[in-house]
Amino acid sequence: MTIERLQPGKRMSQAVRHNGVVYLAGQVAKDYNGTIEQQTREVLDAIDTLLAEAGTDKSRVLTCQVILNNIADFAAMNTVYDAWIDPANPPARACIEARLAHPALKVEIIAVAALD
Rank of each mutant, 00 (worst) to 15 (best):
V61L: 09
S59C: 05
V22E: 03
W84N: 06
A98S: 14
I85Q: 15
V66G: 01
A94R: 08
G55H: 03
L105N: 09
Q38E: 15
R99P: 05
V66P: 01
W84M: 10
A92D: 15
I47W: 04
P91F: 05
A88W: 06
M77N: 04
M1V: 05
I110G: 00
L44R: 00
Q65Y: 12
E97C: 06
L44I: 01
N89W: 08
R41I: 03
R99Y: 02
I85H: 05
T35D: 13
A75H: 13
Q38R: 06
H102K: 14
Y23D: 11
V21M: 11
I36S: 03
I110L: 11
V66M: 07
Y32M: 13
R11I: 11
R93H: 10
Y32E: 14
D86M: 02
D57Q: 01
T56Y: 07
H18A: 10
A83T: 09
A76Y: 04
A92S: 13
L115H: 02
T40I: 03
I109H: 05
I96D: 12
A94T: 15
C95L: 11
R99E: 14
L51R: 06
G20L: 04
F74G: 00
A114P: 01
T79A: 10
D82S: 15
S59P: 10
L50I: 04
R60G: 06
M1T: 10
K58N: 11
A113P: 06
Q7M: 08
N33C: 08
A101V: 15
A29M: 07
I71N: 02
A75R: 12
I96H: 11
T2G: 10
T2N: 13
P8T: 11
D86A: 14
S59Y: 07
N33A: 14
D73C: 02
L50N: 06
N78P: 03
E42R: 01
T49G: 04
K58E: 08
D48V: 02
R60E: 12
A98R: 11
G55P: 04
E37L: 10
A76E: 14
A75G: 07
A88V: 09
Q38D: 13
T2Y: 09
T79W: 05
C95M: 14
I67L: 15
V43M: 02
D48A: 01
M1A: 11
S13M: 11
M77W: 12
V22K: 00
G55W: 05
A94C: 06
R60T: 09
P87F: 09
D31N: 15
A114L: 11
I96T: 15
V21Y: 00
A72F: 00
L115Y: 01
I96C: 09
E53F: 00
E53K: 09
L115N: 02
Q14T: 00
A88D: 14
N19G: 11
L50F: 07
P103W: 06
L105W: 13
